[in-house]
Design a binder for these strands. Structure first.
Length: 818
RNA sequence: GCCGGGGUGGCGAAAUCGGCAGACGCAGCGCACUCAAAAUGCGCCGGGCGUGAGCCCGUGCGGGUUCGAGUCCCGCCCCCGGCACCA
C-alpha cells in the first residue's frame, strides 16, 4: 500500500524534464560552435568567467542567465553564436585555504571547478564546453607566461626597485588599481608602502589610446571611470636651481605655468632624492623627523584632508630661484606632494591653488595673486579665468593664452617644455604568492636578468611546497624550483619566485576561447579573424578600472604584434547592476542574507529562476532579491503549461480570430525589440500578457484552431531564450521539430500589430473627460464627433467657446475651450 | 568638491520624438471551488470627497514653457556609484 500523493500529470513540474533536456542538448552537441557555419555570421557573446570559489551564487546567475538569453536570441536570429565559459582559477583564496591547513591549492581548485561546472550546467545555458578554459592549468598559464615574454621583449615589462603597495594581510604587493580608499581590494586591510624590486607593465605607454574610449558602445559611467582613472593633465615641466649650490637643480611639473610669477615657495615630496643634499644643517633634525613620520604613515593618513595642516610640512632651509623673475623662494617638504606623480616637486602658487593657499596660511608664507579674481572673491585661492596681474610680460593675458606664452618662454630659455602627465601608473604585476603563474625570468650571476626561452614554457608550479605566510613567495622556499640553469651560459641561475597578478590571466582569456586547445600558440590567426573582437561583453562594472582596462591594454599590444583584428577587445560592453540580498545589502555569509541558487532551482526549477531574475527589474539597475516574488513567475510558466497542454475546444473560425492574432504579433514585436535592447523585464511582462490572453480564451472554451496554434508556437519561440527547458518540452508536445533552440526567430506581421478600433482619450483643456472608441484611422472630424457624442464630455463643452481642437490619432482628442 | 546614474502605489517596476500615469508581477482584501486547507480561477487594489454619475489632488521640492509635463527649461533637496592633496 502506498501513501504517496500521486503526481498530477497535467501540472507544470520542471524537475521531470529540465535535466533530461540538458542531457539531450549535450549529447547532440547543439551548443558546439565551429569557427565557420555556411550562411551564418559569427557572433561572439561573452560573459565574465567566475573565480572557482566553490559555490555558484545568485550573482553568477544574475550575470549569466540574461546573458545566455541574449546569446540564444541572437542564435535564433541567424548568427553562429559562440558563448564560452571558463574559470579564472588562480588567486588567493585557494592559497589561504592551504595555509589554514586545508587542501593543496591545486586540489582545492580542481574540486571547486568540478562542482561549479555542475552548477553552471544546471543553468541550462548554451555554454560551449568544448571551449572551456581554466587559467590555472599549465596548458593555459604557459601562454600567460608567453604573453609576459612578449611584453618583456617589446620593452613593456620592466623591473624596478620602487615603493609598492603592500597588503600585510594578503602578504603581497598590489597594483594601484587594487587599492581602494587606501585599503586592499580583496580583504579591506590598510595598505602600506614598501620598497621592493618588482615587475611592472608599461600600461602608461598606451594611456592616450586607452583614454580615447568615446566611440566604444559601452555604458557612459564605465567610460568616465576609465577616463578619470587615467587622468590626463596637460602642463609644463621646468628646472629650478637651488640657490648657492652650483649645479643642484630639480624639475617641477605644473598645469599653470601662467601663474609662475606668483610662486612664493617650492615643495618637494618627502622621498625626493635631493632632500639630503639641500637640507641646511640647522634644519637637518626637523627634516629627518618629518621624513620619518611620513614614511611611517599609511596611505590613508597621508591622503586624508583631515588633521591640522601645519603638521604636514617642514622647511629645508634651502631656497630655489624662480626662473621667471629671478627671485629666491624657500623650499619646503610636504606630504601633499607625491613622489609618484609628475616630478615629485612643485612650484607653489598660493594665489591660484587652494592646497598651496592652505599651506601658505599655515606656514605664514606670502601670497601673490597673478590672476585677477572677481570683485567679490572671498579670502581663498582663485582657480578660474581672468586677466593676468603682477606677472610682467604676461599681464592682461587670459589663462589659455598666458599658458601658451609661458611655455614658449620656458622653451626659449631652454629650461622647460610642454608636458603631459597621467594619473595612471604602470601596472605592478609581481605577487609574492604561490597560486599564480610564475614569472618566466631567471637571474644569472653572469648574464643578469634572462627571460626563460619560449620553448621551455611553461615554468610549472611545483606541487610540493610549504605554505607559510612569510611575506615571501612559497616558491622561494623550494630549492627544486629556485635552482635552475642559465640558458645563455649554462651556469647556475636563480628563478624569479614571484607569480603574476591574476588579472594578467583574465586579460587575455577571451582570446584563448577562440582556439582553446592550441598547443603551438595562444590562438591561431584564423580563429582570431573568425571571432575577434568580442561582439558583446557583459559583466559587473566593479571591473571598470581593473580587468576592463587591462584587457584593453593587452588587446592593443596584441594588435601591435599583428595577432588580432581591430583596436578594441569589446565592441559592445554592458554592465549589469548588482543583485543584493533580500535586505537590500550585499549578500554575505556573515550577514546571513545569502540566497542559494541551488535551493531556488530545486524549489522552482531553472527556468523559473532564470526568468525571475530577468523579470525583477532593469538588468543594469540591480537591486534586492525578493524571495517571495518568484512565485509569480512560476505561476506564469504554470499557465503557459496549462494553455499549451490543455487547450480549449479548437474549431475552424478564422473570422473571430483577428483579435488574438493582433495580441500575438504585438507581443512578438515587443519581445524581439526588448531582447535586443536587453530589456528582459518588459519582455517577460509582454509574454505574461499574451499568456493571460490565451488563458482567457481557454476559459471561454473555444478558439480558432490555426490562430491558437500560431499563438502557442510563437509564445514558445519567444520564451525559448529566457526559459529554454519548458520551451523545448512544450515545443515537442505541440509537434515542433527539435530543437526549439535551432529555430529561426519568427517575423511578426506589421499589419497585425495595430488594432482596427482603438480607445482614445477625449479631453477638455487637457483633462480626460471620457474614453471613446474610434477606428484607428479616424479623421479628426470623425473623432471630434465621436467625442461630442459622449454625453458627459458634451456637457463640458456646450455653452463654451471651442478655441481649438488638438487631435492625435490613436491617442486623444482635446477640446480647448474658454 | 567634481563626474555618472537615479527619486513614480504597501513592494519590484511600466510608460520619456511631450499625449489616457501605475502595464506586468508580489503582498493585501473580497468571492468561487473545497468538509477544510493548499492549489487554481474571478473581482478590487495611489490618496481624498461623494449614495451615485462624478469631482479634486497625485510621479522628490519650488517655479516656468505648453492645448497637454513623470517626460522639456530654470533653481533646489535627497539617494546610489565613481574620483578626490595628481600640482
Amino acid at each position: 500500500m502506498t501513501t504517496e500523493a500521486k503526481t498530477d500529470p497535467g501540472r507544470y513540474q520542471p524537475a521531470e524534464f529540465e535535466a533530461r533536456w540538458r542531457e539531450r542538448w549535450e549529447r547532440d552537441g547543439i551548443n558546439r560552435t565551429p569557427d565557420h557555419v555556411p550562411g551564418r555570421e559569427n557572433r561572439y557573446q561573452l560573459t565574465m568567467l567566475p573565480y572557482p570559489s566553490g559555490d555558484l551564487h545568485v550573482g553568477h546567475w544574475w550575470a549569466m542567465a540574461p546573458s545566455d538569453a541574449l546569446a540564444r536570441f541572437y542564435r535564433m536570429r541567424g548568427y553562429n553564436v559562440m558563448f564560452p565559459m571558463g574559470f579564472d582559477a588562480f588567486g588567493l583564496p585557494a592559497e589561504n585555504a592551504a595555509i589554514k591547513g586545508g587542501r593543496h591549492p591545486r586540489d582545492w581548485t580542481d574540486a571547486n571547478v568540478e562542482r561549479m561546472r555542475g552548477q553552471l550546467r544546471a543553468m541550462g545555458a548554451m555554454f560551449d564546453w568544448d571551449r572551456e578554459v581554466d587559467s590555472s592549468q599549465p596548458d593555459y598559464y604557459r601562454w600567460t607566461q608567453w604573453w609576459f615574454l612578449q611584453l618583456f621583449h617589446r620593452g613593456l615589462a620592466y623591473r624596478k626597485d620602487a615603493l609598492a603597495n603592500w597588503c600585510p594581510s594578503c602578504n603581497t604587493t598590489l597594483a594601484n588599481e587594487q587599492v581602494v580608499d587606501g585599503r586592499c581590494e580583496r580583504c579591506d586591510t590598510e595598505v602600506v608602502q614598501r620598497q621592493m624590486e618588482q615587475w611592472f607593465f608599461r600600461i602608461t605607454q598606451y594611456a592616450d589610446e586607452l583614454l580615447a574610449n568615446d566611440d566604444l558602445d559601452w555604458p557612459e559611467h564605465v567610460k568616465v571611470m576609465q577616463r578619470n582613472w587615467i587622468g590626463r593633465s596637460e602642463g609644463a615641466e621646468f628646472t629650478m636651481r637651488v640657490q648657492g649650490q652650483d649645479g643642484v637643480e630639480f624639475r617641477v611639473y605644473t598645469t599653470r605655468p601662467d601663474t609662475a610669477f606668483g610662486m612664493t615657495f617650492a615643495v618637494l615630496a618627502p622621498e625626493h632624492p635631493l632632500v639630503e643634499t639641500i637640507t641646511t644643517p640647522e634644519q637637518r633634525e626637523a627634516v629627518r623627523e618629518f621624513v620619518e613620520r611620513v614614511r611611517r604613515a599609511t596611505e590613508i593618513e597621508r591622503l586624508s584632508t583631515e588633521g591640522p595642516v601645519e603638521k604636514r610640512g617642514v622647511f629645508t632651509g634651502a631656497h630655489a630661484i624662480n626662473p621667471f623673475n629671478g627671485q629666491p623662494v624657500p623650499i619646503y617638504l610636504a606630504d601633499y606632494v607625491l613622489t609618484s606623480y609628475g616630478t615629485g616637486a612643485i612650484m607653489a602658487v598660493p594665489g591660484q591653488d587652494q592646497r598651496d593657499w592652505d599651506f601658505a596660511k599655515a606656514y605664514d608664507l606670502p601670497i601673490v595673486r597673478t590672476v585677477q579674481p572677481p570683485a567679490d572673491w572671498p579670502d581663498e585661492a582663485y582657480t578660474g579665468d581672468g586677466p593676468a596681474i603682477n606677472s610682467q610680460w604676461l599681464d592682461g593675458l587670459h589663462k589659455a593664452d598666458a599658458i601658451q606664452r609661458a611655455i614658449q618662454w620656458l622653451e626659449g630659455q631652454g629650461i622647460g617644455e610642454r608636458k603631459v602627465n597621467y594619473r595612471l601608473r604602470d601596472w605592478l604585476i609581481s605577487r609574492q604568492r604561490y597560486w599564480g603563474a610564475p614569472i618566466p625570468i631567471l637571474y644569472c650571476e653572469r648574464d643578469g636578468v634572462v627571460p626563460v626561452p619560449e620553448h621551455d614554457l611553461p615554468v610549472e608550479l611545483p606541487y610540493d611546497v610549504q605554505f607559510l605566510p612569510t611575506g615571501q613567495s612559497p616558491l622561494a622556499l623550494s630549492e627544486e624550483f629556485v635552482n635552475a640553469t642559465c640558458p645563455r651560459c649554462q651556469g647556475p641561475a636563480r628563478r624569479e619566485t614571484d607569480t603574476m597578478d591574476t588579472f594578467m590571466c583574465s586579460s587575455w582569456y577571451f582570446m584563448r576561447y577562440v582556439d582553446p586547445q592550441n598547443p603551438e600558440a595562444p590562438f591561431s590567426s584564423a580563429a582570431a579573424q573568425a571571432w575577434l573582437p568580442v561582439d558583446q561583453y557583459t559583466g559587473g562594472s566593479e571591473h571598470a578600472t581593473m580587468h576592463l582596462l587591462y584587457a584593453r591594454f593587452f588587446y592593443k599590444v596584441a594588435r601591435d604584434m599583428g595577432l588580432v583584428p581591430g583596436d578594441e577587445p569589446f565592441t559592445r560592453y554592458y554592465s549589469q547592476g548588482q543583485i543584493l540580498g533580500p535586505d537590500g545589502r550585499r549578500m554575505s555569509k556573515s550577514r546571513g542574507n545569502v540566497v542559494a541558487p541551488d535551493d531556488q532551482v530545486e524549489r522552482w526549477g531553472a527556468d523559473t529562476f532564470r526568468a525571475y531574475l530577468m523579470f525583477l527589474g532593469p538588468w543594469d539597475q540591480g537591486g534586492p532579491y525578493d524571495v517571495d516574488g518568484i512565485v509569480g513567475v512560476f505561476r506564469w510558466l504554470s499557465r503557459v503549461w496549462a494553455v499549451v497542454t490543455d487547450p480549449p475546444a479548437l474549431v475552424d473560425a478564422p473570422d473571430a480570430a483577428r483579435d488574438l492574432r493582433i495580441t500575438t504579433h504585438s507581443a512578438l514585436k515587443k519581445v524581439g525589440e526588448d531582447y535586443d535592447a536587453k530589456r528582459f523585464n518588459t519582455a517577460i511582462a509582454a509574454m505574461m500578457e499574451l499568456t493571460n490572453a490565451l488563458q482567457r480564451l481557454r476559459d471561454q472554451g473555444q478558439a480558432d484552431r490555426a490562430t491558437w496554434y500560431e499563438a502557442v508556437r510563437l509564445l514558445l519561440l519567444m520564451a525559448a531564450p529566457a526559459c529554454p527547458h519548458i520551451a523545448e518540452e512544450l515545443w515537442e508536445r505541440v509537434g515542433g521539430t527539435y530543437s526549439v533552440h535551432q529555430q529561426s526567430w519568427p517575423d511578426f506581421d506589421p499589419a497585425l500589430t495595430v488594432r482596427d478600433t482603438v480607445e482614445i482619450a477625449a479631453q477638455v483643456n487637457g483633462k480626460v473627460r471620457a474614453r471613446i472608441l474610434v477606428p484607428a484611422e479616424a479623421s479628426e472630424e470623425a473623432a471630434r464627433e465621436a467625442a461630442l457624442a459622449d454625453e458627459h464630455l458634451a456637457s463640458q463643452v456646450t455653452g463654451k467657446q471651442v478655441v481649438r481642437v488638438v487631435y492625435v490619432p490613436g491617442r486623444l482628442v482635446n477640446f480647448v475651450v474658454k
